[in-house]
Design a protein around this nucleic acid. Structure first.
Length: 171
DNA sequence: ACGATGATGAAC
DNA sequence: TTCATCATCGTA
């Protein structure tokens, strides 16, 4: 009874979605090879005013997908060598996404994408079985008291937005 | 503490 | 066309 999360799951307030993504499974499939791992750490980027978000500079070819419909992947290259995987949230026209920072046994957004085998091929495609990269609910229940939150990592430049406690993880 | 390494966006 | 910046990681 693994339930694939569809657009309606992501088309909601980003912080709610971020917390609920903990314990869900990121699943990648290439050919006959499938890799699944439970999501253990996420960060939310919410709205065009969030200076930590790529969307704060407005619509650009790169950030266009963040402004679009929920349930699409936003994949970008950082520091010339690591891919970061985000899932777009909220209504069409409102830029928001959640960075998947860690899965079970793997810590760090660049290591997550390397582990699953994600690169820019997945940018701006929907999270679905047909695209080969999706998120499943496998029935794991995360107790609220086992969720921790903190400031986001690596966004010291973001003015007052750097202090938003929009990073969530499981202990 | 710092260098790797290249896409991105803004300035010129 | 050039340049500073960067949602990181591995080595030290």
């Amino acid at each position: 009874m693994n339930r694939v999360l569809l657009r309606q799951f992501f088309d909601r307030p980003t912080l709610d979605v971020a917390k609920e993504l903990l314990g869900k499974f990121l699943v990648g499939k290439e050919g006959s090879k499938t890799i699944a791992a439970m999501i253990t750490e996420v960060e939310a980027y919410v709205g065009h005013k969030d200076r930590a978000s790529h969307a704060s500079r407005g619509r650009t070819p790169r950030t266009e997908v963040m402004f679009g419909k929920a349930g699409y992947w936003y994949v970008y290259l950082i520091y010339g060598m690591h891919y970061c995987l985000n899932i777009v949230t909220e209504r069409d026209g409102y830029p928001a996404a959640i960075l998947i920072r860690g899965v079970e046994g793997i810590s760090g957004p660049g290591r997550v994408t390397k582990y699953i085998g994600i690169d820019k091929r997945y940018n701006a495609v929907p999270a679905s079985r047909t695209s080969g990269l999706w998120i499943e609910d496998r029935g794991v229940v995360i107790k609220p008291q086992s969720i921790r939150r903190s400031k986001r990592i690596g966004v010291e430049y973001a003015g007052s937005w750097k202090d938003k406690k929009w990073r969530f993880w499981i202990i």
